[in-house]
């Protein structure tokens, strides 16, 4: 087992993608020991999934490179048209979700991005650094779309032993991925559409990261979560603006657009973090429509 996954990934990127290697090394120069500890913890968990699949990090980095190329291509079109290339769930379902190869590559690419992209780490560290505030009031935790299990793992470490953990996902592939990566019986894995949840079920903390941009009607989704949330409960929601990807449908234009959306869906923002994907001055980022990562702890208004 590799002990320093960061070095492994850096070395693989240097061999395969000079531009991404350069970007990652610039990011690493700003990182502290806590980043390295968190990254190595996640990648050791993720390696369990790779081993299960008979693959290694060279496969993941290959997926990451492929994802970056897809993104580059989507971005070029976005700068030209001002729209995401997919306008409906049906589009994405046919191109990605019903194509096991495309879906698997994308998911493994995203696993690497969690700690290689500066904005993705900001999204995670904002969650991890603030979770302690919710420990005393969380009896039931729900995560919508768990992916590689990074966020629910952190919640498992923070919350009390008597907290229940539910992870719901509409994709069997994604549920299986979470199960293998997490390797714990403390989580109830639920293969279901969140809209099929009984509104009588109430949760104290709901995490929904990078999901709402994948649906046609994110307001209906957030309102459903509002139904499932206890009156004093909290949701951790993240979504990007100006971030064309092969599976993104709903386009937010900036942080204010996302704030208004959340308020219109019936929530107040308790705390938020918004960062551009590239570390650069604000004016230039706006001019080039650089993707923006937005994350917030929200409660019912």
């Amino acid at each position: 087992m590799a002990e320093d996954y960061i070095s492994v990934i850096t070395s693989l990127l240097e061999k395969t993608n000079a531009i991404q290697a350069k970007k990652f090394k610039t990011f690493l120069d700003t990182c502290d020991d806590l980043y390295r500890k968190r990254a190595n913890l996640f990648f050791s968990q993720y390696e369990r999934l790779l081993n299960h699949l008979g693959k290694d990090f060279s496969y993941s980095v290959d997926c990451y490179n492929r994802m970056n190329t897809d993104m580059l291509y989507e971005r070029i079109q976005f700068l030209d048209t001002g729209k995401y290339s997919n306008q409906s769930f049906e589009d994405v379902k046919n191109k990605i979700y019903l194509s096991p190869d495309a879906f698997e590559h994308h998911m493994h690419g995203l696993a690497i991005a969690q700690f290689v992209w500066w904005d993705q780490y900001q999204r995670f560290s904002f969650f991890a650094d603030n979770l302690h505030k919710y420990v005393d009031r969380t009896g039931r935790y729900l995560e919508v779309g768990g992916g590689h299990g990074l966020y629910i793992s952190e919640a498992l470490r923070h919350f009390n032993n008597d907290t229940t953990f539910d992870l719901v996902d509409i994709s069997p592939t994604s549920i299986e991925m979470s199960k293998v990566a997490l390797n714990t019986n403390r989580v109830n894995y639920i293969l279901k559409d969140i809209f099929d949840f009984d509104g009588k079920e109430k949760f104290d903390f709901i995490t929904i990261g990078e999901v709402i941009e994948h649906v046609e009607d994110p307001k209906a989704l957030m309102q459903k979560l509002g139904e499932l949330l206890n009156d004093n409960g909290t949701i951790y929601v993240t979504t990007p603006a100006n971030a064309p990807m092969i599976d993104h449908i709903y386009l937010f234009h900036d942080a204010e657009d996302i704030r208004s959306f959340l308020q219109n869906a019936g929530f107040k923002i308790v705390d938020e973090r918004a960062v551009f994907a590239e570390n650069m001055e604000y004016k230039k980022a706006v001019k080039y429509k650089v993707p923006l990562m937005y994350a917030a702890f929200i409660q019912k208004s």
């Binding site: 531009i19 580059l72 650069m280 650089v290």
Partner: peptide, 19 residues
């Protein structure tokens, strides 16, 4: 010439360049 030979040839500039 490769990307690492040019200091400012980063991921953002690469996109702008292709466009």
């Amino acid at each position: 010439t490769v990307a690492t030979d040019v200091e400012d040839w980063d991921s953002l500039n690469h996109i702008q360049m292709v466009v």
